[in-house]
Amino acid sequence: MESPLHPIHLKVQDAYGRIASLGESCSGSQSSCCGGARADEIAQGVGYSEVELAILPQGANLGLSCGNPTVFAELKEGEVVLDLGSGAGLDVFLAAQRVGPGGRAIGVDMTPGMLAKARRHAAEFHRRTGLDNVVFHQGQIEAIPLPSASVDVVISNCVLNLSPDQPQVWKEIARVLKPGGRVSISDMVLLRPLPDAVRKSVEALVGCIAGAALLDDLKGMVSGAGLVDPSFMPKGEAVEAMLPLNDPMTAHLLGLLPDGSRPSDFITSLIVSARKPA
């Protein structure tokens, strides 16, 4: 039986449910991790190409990214890929094309509205590409609804910071990976602690900022889960794409940060790579 939702889960599920059903942002913002009309602009700013975006079903890209984990995952034909917090299916559909008909791309998300959207997109993806290698499951990333040692690669895009128990998420990642399996995760990471006002802001939480871990803490989670050969690649340019100066979320954050500071002084986008020992 699935565990009851944590209060943070409930806040996140409510916000992302609204995004799925109405296409609105989590706080009136147009920034990434909140969605909005700038979806393609944001996606290109954080690392997606026009070619990748063009093949996607309409609406699969909601502008919720802070990087492009499929680029760094080095996916191969025939592999099984798991996307944690798969949303409307953006990275699942890109991964499905890379692993081909002999592989499989699996999405896990806890928000029913997002899952319904992704499953509708899957039908369109099949019509466009002929591929029938995607599946979406409802579940919490702290208790992934898959068997142990069942996937070759775990990807995720700006989702782990939303979890109330990030060390447990990393343990679950290690559990579902096959020996020798690998991780390619894009997420927001703190360069230094946030002021209390930002940490307590629901808008900043759902905007992928208040829940971000400190870099040293993240490194401890990865090693604590038993993963090896970690790599942490900052993608600072993604923050500029996600939080331009005219963005309502940027204005909200600037009102909570010390005078003269910017969001990029506290937070960055990071590509995290690691593998499970063979």
Rank of each mutant, 00 (worst) to 15 (best):
L84N: 01
L214S: 06
I185E: 02
P4C: 12
L177Q: 05
L82Y: 01
L253T: 14
R262V: 13
P147F: 01
G102C: 04
A123C: 05
P193T: 12
G63K: 09
A213V: 06
V202C: 03
S31W: 09
M110N: 00
A197D: 14
E203N: 13
H6P: 08
S25W: 05
K276Y: 08
V169S: 00
S86F: 01
G220Y: 06
V71M: 09
I185L: 03
I155F: 04
L160W: 03
A122G: 06
G181A: 08
G236R: 13
S32K: 04
D196S: 15
D187W: 06
E142I: 03
G224W: 08
A212H: 06
H126N: 00
R182C: 13
P244D: 13
V51S: 09
H126W: 00
V202W: 07
R18K: 14
S49F: 07
S163D: 04
L90Q: 10
F125R: 00
G36A: 08
A60C: 15
V80H: 05
S65Q: 15
Q166D: 06
V169C: 03
S49A: 03
G35H: 12
R120V: 02
C33E: 06
S269W: 02
Q30C: 10
P179Y: 06
Q30M: 12
G45I: 14
T70N: 02
A143E: 07
